[in-house]
Nucleic acid binder design. Sequence first.
DNA 1: TGTTTTTCCGTAAACGTTTACGAGAACACA
DNA 2: TGTGTTCTCGTAAACGTTTACGGAAAAACA
Lengths: 341, 341
Amino acid sequence: MASSIHDLARHLNISIGTVSRALNGRADVNADTRQRVLDAAKKLNYSPNQSGRSLRRGATHSIAFMLQPHPGDQEYGEPFFIPFLTGLQAKLAESGLDLIVVMGAPGDYQQERLRRVVETRRADAVVLAWTRREDERIDYLTQAGFPFATLGRSRSGGDSYPSLDLDFEKAGADAVDRLVARGHRRIAAIRPSLDLNFGYLFLAGYRKALRRHGIEFDPELIADGFINEAGGYAVTPKVMRSKDPPTAIIFNNDAMALGGCKALAEAGIRPGHDVAVIVIVDTPLCRYFSPALTGFRPALEPMGERLAEMLLASIPAYAGAEGARIIREVWPLELIARDSD
Amino acid sequence: MASSIHDLARHLNISIGTVSRALNGRADVNADTRQRVLDAAKKLNYSPNQSGRSLRRGATHSIAFMLQPHPGDQEYGEPFFIPFLTGLQAKLAESGLDLIVVMGAPGDYQQERLRRVVETRRADAVVLAWTRREDERIDYLTQAGFPFATLGRSRSGGDSYPSLDLDFEKAGADAVDRLVARGHRRIAAIRPSLDLNFGYLFLAGYRKALRRHGIEFDPELIADGFINEAGGYAVTPKVMRSKDPPTAIIFNNDAMALGGCKALAEAGIRPGHDVAVIVIVDTPLCRYFSPALTGFRPALEPMGERLAEMLLASIPAYAGAEGARIIREVWPLELIARDSD
DNA sequence: TGTTTTTCCGTAAACGTTTACGAGAACACA
DNA sequence: TGTGTTCTCGTAAACGTTTACGGAAAAACA
């Protein structure tokens, strides 16, 4: 079934060395024999065995993205990643690299799977998401000297790796500014319950903006929940029970906002009318919800492309002539004003 | 950095053959030396090189799931697959197999990437989703003799491969039955625009039930759109423009329903009040929408687990003592009655 | 013609495993 | 003591590549 380089050599009556050189486009092979090899390869449906190639080259030519059901989100996952992965894949493919997505089991936060990928040398580098404030995965990878890049920042690992993040701090502040400008003073914030870094950044921006406007920070207006509909649903009533209830709520993302709006509706509070709603990370869902939710839209596919470039630039073997370098970027979030605030 | 079996052998002053046998739990190695090897492996942080192992064994011990942004759905993807993949991963891990998710570029419907996986022998088997009525991927894989299983049925390839599907036909009929019982006679159906097999099954059940109730099929009440919010939004007005507009709409899935409800709301039609809504494939989103959408919930994680079992059972090398066999199953969809109908 | 350079290709080793084969040592049994 | 069996391990080949090395033939040059 599978034809090897030996089959080609036998078929053409030349040595396997020549076949390999012809296939790899090396200079020291006659143009005529190269063509014959190429033709034979097509005819015999040859394609190189990945294991053999990786073994010899010491590189797999593939990059791993660690995907896992988020804790507290066992049931359904984030559609967030698909466009990001599309961009990542496209850019990596340009360099002849494959993207593989490694599924982790829910719960272990990928440590086990990550070790497996690294130790069995299944990929040349990995891409991490859901970065935490202090991230043990980053510590592990830096300590192991394994190349990686992150979608999101972390305090772990210093500046030793490429990272691409969104400016959640500014988005949090912008959301507050916008709401204050519209007359709100009691503004709640619904965050992810885990120590995910963007939850911190979002809140930091929120607090900074409040201070700027001379509004006192009220812990009663902050609540943490799982990053999904159930989380928003469970947690929103808490902030509404405040002695002086909020007139506006900033949700971390669309799913939490959806759950939160459901809770509001059940309490007879109309989102967009009785209470303003803004979401930080918006997806197309926000646009089609009623009321359409004002939010900050990330450019996910370009981010995937960019992170691929940044990752490759950081790896000596893949970096071009100018040599390896670490790039870290923070991208703006674009406000899309709709009907909910 | 990476320690090999040779390092272990040198360290323990024994041969690499013995080390390998000890590591692989073969019988012909002294219990004492095995223990020493195991200890040394832990101490030197040894783990087998995947490429070397695959090359020698002729198997990668990993299964590939082909994931790709759905055509017309470039922007955001289906959260649908995450719980399925979780189940798949968990079950495969029990057999020591890795699950890798191969990202395809949008558009090429995976043919290119699939070939790549198969021809470079990157995985021992693949799992396909989004099965079409006639599916060239299935034709390719059967013709290539490559092991695979599908989430969803197809007319391609006969019964030669394991498949697990949901009973969309029955769900379509059940939806009609339920709506008719509630007094509806003008029932619209919003389908995916592509020739995805479940779109056909859903419509087949719909038509069968209509016939059973003596309701004439009206093509004006059928519309096809992309499987996302934009698709539902774009297409729902079409059926509402019918001379005799529907009093109920069955949507293929939650995202389409969301878009559709938006379109209805903009036209001053209240979903759940003025027009009944049912969705075929429901996710948690349905529960938190207002009105909460009645829908049919698939058991995605168990399906993932089951398909892993079925795939393994079909591959001689992985099937147990009873030998390889092809299993095909169709699972029921459970109706979750909520507020929208 | 003789020397040097260039072009092209074959040989063989190496990457890290697994495993068939065989052999030495220990043991059992007569 | 001789024969047979069982344990345990080393040797070496193999999986499919890539590539350093060297050499033969052809080309270029003096």
